[in-house]
Structures are given as structure tokens and as C-alpha cells.
Write a protein that binds this DNA or RNA. Structure first.
Length: 800
RNA sequence: GCCGGCGUGUCGGAAUGGCAGACGAGGCAGACUCAAAAUCUGCUGUCCGAGAGGGCGUGUGGGUUCGAGUCCCACCGCCGGCACCA
């Protein structure tokens, strides 16, 4: 058969869609399978080969599941709000709505041309008002339950994008969107209290099937630590100076304290402090440093003693000095620490620089040279001297502190609350109202959606306010509570809002009464298999788990976790082994491949190019190799013979069914395709194949190369669609050959291979092996010590 | 510094503790062709050997085992994440 992919690919895409093969059926009695991929951000650049790889895994699994008789939900949508579109709109002076619509159309056409089996009836666009109505609705639920709060603190701010960023959006001190340095600014910010869910986000990980590295990254990001809060006092006052420590066992080794420069107690006792001017100067110096300078460059500790203020150690009543230093962060713990220079390297360095006493309380190491952070017997520590390891000492000290009422067990998280407002136009308006009498008031649910007003000018304001602040008709409103003149919040939600619940909407995409009905959620949730990128592990994947857990707690969804199983694809690199980028000129456009070799070739190649989870460079020659494979598949129609094929081929077919079936489940797509290639080579060697066996082969290949296989199936006069035909079953008995070749080792070295009947006993196998000339020559004149026979694997003679 | 992952031909990569290098690419040789492309056939880890054959080979060094790419210990290198987190 001639392989005319340009004709057959659009033909089948249309036929499948017309026949509704990929439309998921709510409440079907078949078992359900919900496969999910991260919906694309519809950028003007169009689809990237990375999208193809990211979607292909769940695509293949979804197609296999349909053939296995499942009712499959494999949806797609568009994560359409966001800064890049807005920046492009500003640059080109076009409306982001228009650009978004154009890009969504473009993306949809491109996705269709690859033949992905998405259910196009459930497409969602996070920037359409019938979608973001529910994003706002969920936000109001969060507000109603006290998980939204406003605070003036130091926040991450991108001067280039003119926008406040969350911690997740500024990892490594760089803006997630433009990669410029993020600075710290004091600002009023709306936060979502994600830290409230820190423990649930951790414990939930134990119930889901995520790869270990994803779990570890989330655990790291959440950063739980267990320790104790201890009250020191400010000398000469009743003021408590609370600290957080993981090492309360070292309390007798405390020789000074350090507060973060911004600590509020400094201002409270400013009149007692004799060097307040110097402290103010130090604060300003710290504020000027970028996050990078503060954490990376400055290994040399800076700081300043607070003159006129000292602290009292509650365990021994000793008076100790207090310093301020920027190695202590206001945003973690209490913003103040007890310093134990003998057993903490940072404190040790600080003590050395400022000439502070060092008291060793754990035996071991050489504290002249560096802090000793190992375990050992307690010394110089009063009652604690009875203990000789960290765990016991901590326990004993904690009990003592609790009894005296000066300390208590506590936990801390590195994760910060989610800074949730953006000073930009292209996002969901935050449905809150500032009333001069009532304070912050929610927009009533029945007034949703709070529509994004149409404007001409999307430039962010120089005053740090969003463009919405310039629209009086939007800003001015009446308070829903008291009717007084009030003003709307003018910031919008971050990019991540819409994607935090989109997987719920797919279950009931057109519902205008609820974000999704409980019946449909109960039928479809949880997502059975979710594939996406590693870059979202500490962003979208955390955020969406948080929203979902919240919705579960208030009884609006039926599962505690949204995703039963998560996987991640490896990046496709340029052919030079570097990350694809326009500036390097190594970008591959998937549509070029579709036009040149066909969608099936593209699909087979991205799945065959290497281990699915690892990064691999693009290779044009290998793409051609995949095309060659499909050409040879098309050629199989010339090999159809009437007779039954050989037993050897039949065995191989059953082995291949087994291997392809298992490998797809294990995401080993490359070896699944390799097995199909091997079988194909064998069929060509054999010279003919029975029609029924060819159809089995086509079914196995169908999830990878659906167009070509469907076309051949039609030509063979197959009934219905191959795409939804039954997945082949294998007969375990037929996966084993009648005879098998096993290696024969002498002293662990392979010396020969012999053919033995399958399932033969040890004696027979050994006899056949000994009869082999080469084996015999190695055994000759040696004393046999041991004979090992592992059926189907190996024979080993141990001789002396 | 902490956490996770990975080191196998020229390249992408295969190998439930059992014949290392499947499959694909690349390379070399041949067939077809006026020629090229496409296609087809054979060879292709490395060293010694004319050959038969043999030695050595999965980052390094040890160990367990009849047998180790795979398990254990120590080390080296690379990638990713977190990071003055108290």
C-alpha cells in the first residue's frame, strides 16, 4: 500500500470526530478512565514539540483504554489568562481577547492535525466569563472560610513586569515570566492561606502515586521542620522575645541572640536603644540588597549589636547580648533566634567576627576550628548532662520547658502564604469591595461573574496599580452590605488561579449552576493519570492540590486528592543537546514534521526517542527512521498470505502483545515501539502474514500511529473503526517457544549457547550442554564442583 | 551544605541478579542506477590473531554471589531541586 499520509490523516481525523469516538459519556456503565494533560497556554508561537511529547503519553494510554472498553475522558482546554499575552497586546496595541481567540484557534487546529483524541465537546478557556465566574466563586469560598487575608509585608516584586509575585513565581530570586531579578518591597498584598494546608499537602502525598522525585520536591518546598518555641525575656522588662529552634537541647550553649533587621521589638524599644541611628542605617543597607546578594554572595556575616537592650536566657538566667543581622529572616520562625556558636556554623562565624563567647554543650569535634554539629554527650548543661544523645536531650529539654511554661513544641514550614493579586489587566478580577464603613466585603455570589471591563489601554500604571484602577465605572460601586459608596479591588488573580481547578470543570464543562455537579464529579474524579512538566511540581501541582483539598473540606468535591497518579515527561532538547530556544536557532516546529513526514511519524518518534521521563536531543535522522518503519508497515499489505503463519511468528506475536500491553502501562513507550519494530522485521523475514495477525499488529500500533493503522484496517475490510476495536489479548501459553536457546557458562564465563526444549528437566539440559563440543573442551580434564541450571536463563558449570 | 536522580558503543537508548549493547540512528561495504536519492543485503564495543579463536569491557576502587550494568561499602563526575530556614 502506498503511504499517502497527507490524504489519510485529515480524512481520519474528520471521520473520528464526526463519529464522536472521543466524546466521553457521563454516567456510562463502562469503567471510567480520566486521563489529563496540562492544558496549554495559547501563546502566539503555537505548538512546541514539547507539547507533543507531554500529551502523547496520556494520548496513547487513553487510546489503549478505549480499546480495552473504558469510558475515557481525555479533555483539553486553554490556560488563557496571563502576562505574556498582555505584554504582547501592549507591544502590538491589540486587545488580549482578540489575540487569545486567534491563538486558541491556531492551537486547536494544530492539536487536531496531530490526531490527538481529545474530547472537543468539553474545551475550556479560563479567560471566558462562563469559566472565570467559577474561579471567582471558588475564591469567594476561600474568602468566606478565612483563607484570604490582606497583609503589608515584604513581598517579591518584579520591576520589569511591574507585578507582585508569589514565592512560587520567584524561585531562585528570578521572575518566573521575564527572569529578571526580583526585589523585596513592602506592599499590601492579598494572600491565600496555603500554609494552613501545609500538613495536608504533605500527608496527602502518601496516598497518591507520584514519582519519588516529585514527592521529594514538594516535601522540600513545603519544608516542614519540628522544633520548639522558647520565650527569652528582654532584660529589665516583662517583654518576651520568642524564638524558634530545632535544637532546644543546646539552650545552655546560647551566648547571644539575633533578630532580623525588621523585627518589630526594635521599634517598640527604640527609646532604650542607644545606637538607633546605626541600626536604621543597617536596615536600609539590608533593604537595598537583592535576594541574590543576601543569600548567595554574602557569606561574610554582617550585623550590629543592639546597644542598651539585652536578653535573659530562661534556662540559666544569664544575660546575653542581642544583635541584628540579615542572616536571620523575618519571614521564618519568629524572626529572632537563639545563637549557639559552638554547635551552629552560622552562629560560630558570627561569634568569631564579633568576639562573642562560645560555650560547648555537646562533647565532640573541635570548636576552635568550626561548630560541632554532630551527636554526643551533653556537658555544661545542668540536668541535661545526664543525656548522651540528641533525641533524648531534646525530649528532656522540651518536657522541662513545657513544665516551666517557657517553651512549647512547634512546627515551621518554609512554604509561604500565596501572594495572590497581580497589578495587571489580563486576569480574573478579584471579586472584593473596599467599603469605608464595612471594610472588605465580598461581591455577592449572584453578581458573578465580575466581568473584566473592556479597555483600550492595558499598560500597568506607574503607581503600581492595575489598569483597572483607571476605569471609574469599574472602580466605583456600592457596598453590598450597607449601600455606601465603595471601591472595587482593582488587582487581578495570578495566572495559576484558573488552572487550580480546571480538571474539575472538564467533568461538567457546560454547567451554569455549579462549577461542576457532584454527580459528575463522583463519576469522573479522581483524575486517573495526569502527565505534565517538572517545572510545575512546586507551582501548579501544589496550588491545585491546595484548592482541591479546600473544596473537599467544604464538601464540594468527593476526593481528598485530585490526581491519583502523576507522571512527568523529559524535555526535548535541540539537536545540539541544548534547550530549544529561538536565540539558539535549534527549535523544531512540530507542524513542519507533520507536513514533511506525517503526524504518525511525529507521534511515533517522540515516543520512541528515548526514555519518556528523561531529556533527549532531537535527531532528524531518527525521525526518518520512524518514517521508514511506518513505510514498512504500509508495505505489510503486500505480504498477506492465506495460510496460517509459522508457530514461531505466532509465539512472537503473543510475546509482542504482552510486551506492548505492559510497556504502555509502565510508560516504556520506547521499548513498546521497539518490540513492534522487531516483530515487523520478523514478519518481513517470514515473507508473509495472515490477515488476522496483521490486524492484531495494527491494533498494537494504533495508539501510536492511529491514522495509518486505521487506513490499512479499512483497506482490509475491517468493520467499524480500528481506533475503538478490542485491544488484543495474549495467551500466556503461546508466549513461550517450544525450544529455547540458553547460554552455557563455565566458571561464570559464557562459552556456548545450546538449544533445549522448554521446560525440560535439569539433567536433560545439562546433558545437552555437555554434549556441546565447545563446552566439552572447557570441561575436559577439570574437576566438576557444581552445576547450576536456571530454567530458561542459564547453565553454569563450576570446575576446578 | 541538604534532598532527589543519573554515569552502558560514534549518538538516542535496551537489559525480573542469568548470553551486555535489543530497537533506532550514524558509519563502512555491496546490490539496483548513466548518476544521485530512495530502497534492499551484509558488517559495525575494543584489543590480539591470517583464521579458528581468545583477552578486556557498563565512571573508579573494594565486597557479596556459581554468576553483578543490576545488590552492598567507599570514592569521582554530571543533572535537577532547595538553601544563612535557625
Amino acid at each position: 500500500m502506498k503511504y499517502d499520509f497527507k490524504k489519510m490523516e485529515p480524512k481520519w481525523q474528520k471521520k473520528w470526530e464526526d463519529a464522536g469516538l472521543f466524546s466521553a459519556e457521563d454516567f456510562s456503565s463502562k469503567p471510567k478512565f480520566y486521563g489529563l494533560v496540562e492544558f496549554p497556554y495559547p501563546s502566539g508561537a503555537g505548538m512546541h514539540v514539547g507539547h507533543i511529547k507531554a500529551y502523547s503519553s496520556v494520548e496513547v494510554i487513553s487510546r489503549k483504554r478505549r480499546m480495552q472498553g473504558y469510558n475515557v475522558l481525555f479533555p483539553i482546554g486553554f490556560d488563557a489568562f496571563g502576562l505574556p499575552t498582555e505584554n504582547y497586546a501592549i507591544k502590538t496595541n491589540t486587545h488580549p481577547r482578540y489575540i487569545t481567540d486567534v491563538n486558541i484557534k491556531k492551537f486547536s487546529d494544530q492539536l487536531r492535525s496531530v490526531g490527538f483524541s481529545f474530547d472537543w465537546n468539553r474545551v475550556i478557556d479560563t479567560s471566558s466569563d462562563d469559566y472565570y465566574k467559577w474561579t471567582q466563586w471558588i475564591f469567594l469560598k476561600l474568602f468566606e472560610h478565612g483563607l484570604v487575608f490582606r497583609d503589608k509585608t515584604l513581598v517579591n516584586y518584579c520591576p520589569h513586569c511591574k507585578v507582585v509575585l508569589s514565592n512560587e513565581d520567584s524561585q531562585g530570586g528570578k521572575c518566573d515570566i521575564c527572569h529578571s531579578d526580583v526585589i523585596q518591597l513592602p506592599k499590601d498584598v492579598w494572600y491565600l492561606r496555603i500554609t494552613e494546608y501545609a500538613d495536608k499537602l504533605l500527608s496527602g502525598l502518601e496516598t497518591v502515586e507520584y514519582p519519588e522525585n516529585i514527592k521529594q520536591q514538594q516535601i522540600n518546598w513545603i519544608g516542614k521542620s519540628t522544633g520548639a518555641f522558647v520565650d527569652f525575656t528582654i532584660d529589665g522588662t516583662d517583654e518576651k522575645l520568642e524564638i524558634y529552634t530545632t535544637r532546644c537541647d543546646t539552650l545552655y550553649g546560647v551566648t547571644f541572640m539575633v533578630m532580623a533587621p525588621e523585627h518589630p521589638l526594635i521599634d517598640k524599644y527604640a527609646d532604650r536603644i542607644s545606637n538607633m541611628d546605626a541600626i536604621r542605617a543597617y536596615r536600609e543597607e539590608c533593604a537595598k540588597k537583592t535576594e541574590f546578594e543576601r543569600t548567595q554572595l554574602v557569606k561574610d556575616k554582617t550585623g550590629l549589636k543592639i546597644e542598651g537592650l539585652s536578653a535573659v536566657n530562661p534556662v540559666n538566667g544569664k544575660t546575653i547580648p542581642i544583635f541584628i543581622a540579615d542572616y536571620v529572616m523575618m519571614g521564618y520562625g519568629t524572626g529572632a533566634i537563639m545563637a549557639v556558636p559552638a554547635h551552629d556554623q552560622r552562629d560560630w562565624e558570627f561569634a568569631h567576627k564579633f568576639g562573642i563567647d562560645i560555650i560547648q554543650v555537646i562533647e565532640g569535634g573541635d570548636i576552635e576550628k568550626e561548630a560541632y554539629t554532630g551527636d554526643g554527650k551533653m556537658i555544661n548543661s545542668d540536668f541535661l548532662n545526664a543525656y548522651s544523645n540528641k533525641k533524648d536531650s531534646i525530649e528532656a529539654m522540651l518536657a522541662w520547658l513545657q513544665e516551666k511554661g517557657i517553651g512549647r513544641a512547634g512546627i515551621q514550614f518554609k512554604m509561604k502564604d500565596w501572594a495572590f493579586n497581580r497589578q495587571r489587566y489580563w486576569g480574573e478580577p478579584i471579586p472584593l469591595i473596599h467599603c469605608p464603613k464595612c471594610g472588605v466585603v465580598a461581591v455577592p455570589y449572584e453578581e458573578l461573574p465580575l466581568r473584566l471591563p473592556d479597555v483600550k489601554d492595558f499598560e500597568p500604571g506607574e503607581d503600581g496599580k492595575s489598569p483597572l484602577a483607571r476605569i471609574d465605572s469599574f472602580v466605583n460601586c456600592t457596598c453590598p452590605k450597607c449601600g455606601a459608596a465603595a471601591k472595587r479591588e482593582t488587582d487581578t488573580m495570578p495566572q495559576w488561579a484558573g488552572s487550580s481547578w480546571y480538571f474539575l470543570r472538564y467533568t461538567d464543562a457546560h454547567n451554569d449552576k455549579e462549577f461542576a455537579s457532584m454527580d459528575k464529579l463522583k463519576y469522573w474524579m479522581p483524575v486517573d493519570w495526569y502527565n505534565g512538566g517538572m517545572e510545575h511540581v512546586t507551582r501548579h501541582l501544589i496550588y491545585s492540590r491546595f484548592w482541591h483539598q479546600f473544596l473537599y473540606d467544604i464538601g464540594l468535591v468527593n476526593t481528598p486528592e485530585p490526581y491519583a497518579k502523576r507522571t512527568a515527561q523529559g524535555m526535548i532538547l535541540g539537536s545540539d543537546g541544548e534547550k530549544m530556544s529561538k536565540s539558539r536557532g535549534n527549535v523544531v516546529d512540530p507542524l513542519d514534521i507533520v507536513n514533511l513526514y506525517g503526524a504518525d511519524t511525529l507521534r511515533v518518534y517522540v515516543m520512541f526517542m528515548g526514555d519518556y521521563g528523561s531529556a533527549a536531543p532531537w535527531n532528524d535522522s531518527s525521525v526518518k527512521g520512524c518514517r521508514r518503519f511506518l513505510d514498512r508497515v504500509a508495505g505489510l499489505t503486500d505480504l498477506i498470505g492465506e495460510q496460517e503463519s509459522t508457530p514461531a511468528l505466532e509465539t512472537m506475536l503473543h510475546k509482542t502483545i504482552k510486551k506492548v500491553s505492559e510497556d504502555i502501562e509502565a510508560q516504556k513507550f520506547n521499548t513498546a515501539i521497539a518490540a513492534l519494530m522487531t516483530l515487523l522485521n520478523e514478519i518481513y523475514k517470514n515473507g508473509s502474514i495472515a490477515k488476522g495477525e496483521l490486524i492484531t499488529f495494527l491494533k498494537l500500533l494504533s495508539p501510536f500511529a492511529p491514522h495509518l493503522t486505521e487506513e490499512i484496517y479499512e483497506q482490509l475490510g475491517g468493520e467499524g473503526f480500528l481506533t475503538v476495536s478490542e485491544w488484543p489479548a495474549y495467551d500466556e501459553a503461546k508466549t513461550v517457544d517450544a525450544t529455547i536457546e540458553v547460554g552455557v557458562q563455565v566458571n561464570g564465563k559464557v562459552r556456548a549457547a545450546v538449544t533445549i526444549p522448554v521446560g525440560c528437566d535439569k539433567d536433560t539440559a545439562l546433558r545437552i550442554a555437555r554434549e556441546n563440543e565447545r563446552v566439552a573442551s572447557f570441561l575436559e580434564g577439570k574437576k566438576l564442583v557444581k552445576e547450576i541450571y536456571v530454567p530458561g536463563k542459564i547453565l553454569n558449570f563450576v570446575v576446578k
